[in-house]
């Protein structure tokens, strides 16, 4: 058996400017487990991208690589270079496609290219307006039976947008939300 926690400690935690902690990365691995095609909306320095590429067959990663007010603004070159350094082996192998553009433009391009995914991970800007736009723009790219999930539902902007567009989404202790079509009502099932 393989210890994924050891892999996270070796491969991801040393990445410069990593924004997630070990329990969050372990949780993302569980969310990704068994999914084949993934769209990652918001990639920053590529730690989650590397995790997704390790577990899934095909990954599309969308980010404008200039940061924002939550993670700090940066030069495009700085963040893009960090992401490339983290993920170059997967890009070279054709498993990973990086769309270096804003998330709305990325959704439009993926739609034009006919891409759908069975997992879409939303973790770009965290204000209501942007999260709302990301959910709206990427939901049409979700394959039937697929899962849309995201990070930071503890942040008001994220929580408000998910509440509004995906009522009934599941909330996890490790700071994730997850949704798929036809989730049960837990109050009724209690």
């Amino acid at each position: 058996m393989q210890d994924f926690k050891a892999w996270v400690a070796r491969e991801l935690l040393p990445i410069e400017r990593i924004a997630m902690r070990e329990p969050e990365l372990m949780m993302l691995a569980l969310l990704a487990f068994g999914h084949r095609t993934v769209i990652e909306v918001g990639a920053l320095t590529g730690s989650c991208t590397k995790l997704l590429c390790t577990l899934c067959e095909r990954v599309y990663s969308v980010d404008h690589f200039v940061g924002d007010r939550w993670v700090g603004t940066h030069d495009f070159g700085y963040l893009h270079d960090l992401h490339t350094a983290t993920t170059k082996e997967f890009q070279r192998g054709g498993q990973l496609t990086v769309l270096a553009m804003d998330t709305a433009t990325g959704a439009a391009q993926l739609r034009r290219d006919g891409v759908t995914a069975d997992l879409i991970f939303i973790d770009a800007a965290h204000d209501t307006e942007h999260v709302r736009a990301d959910i709206t723009n990427y939901l049409p790219l979700l394959a039937p039976g697929g899962v849309m999930c995201g990070h930071d539902p503890t942040m008001e902007g994220v929580k408000a947008a998910v509440n509004e567009l995906l009522p009934g989404a599941l909330l996890y202790e490790t700071n994730y939300w997850a949704w798929r079509e036809g989730l049960p009502d837990l109050e009724v099932q209690a």
Partner: peptide, 28 residues
């Protein structure tokens, strides 16, 4: 992305449409 505190302050309040699965699991 943020690496902020997680967990204990997550709760399913009346006005919240997100569903806290961990709570359901501990009850059921």
């Amino acid at each position: 992305m943020t690496g902020g505190d997680t967990g204990p302050h997550l709760c399913l309040s009346q006005e919240d449409d997100l569903q806290h699965l961990t709570t359901w699991i501990s009850r059921n």
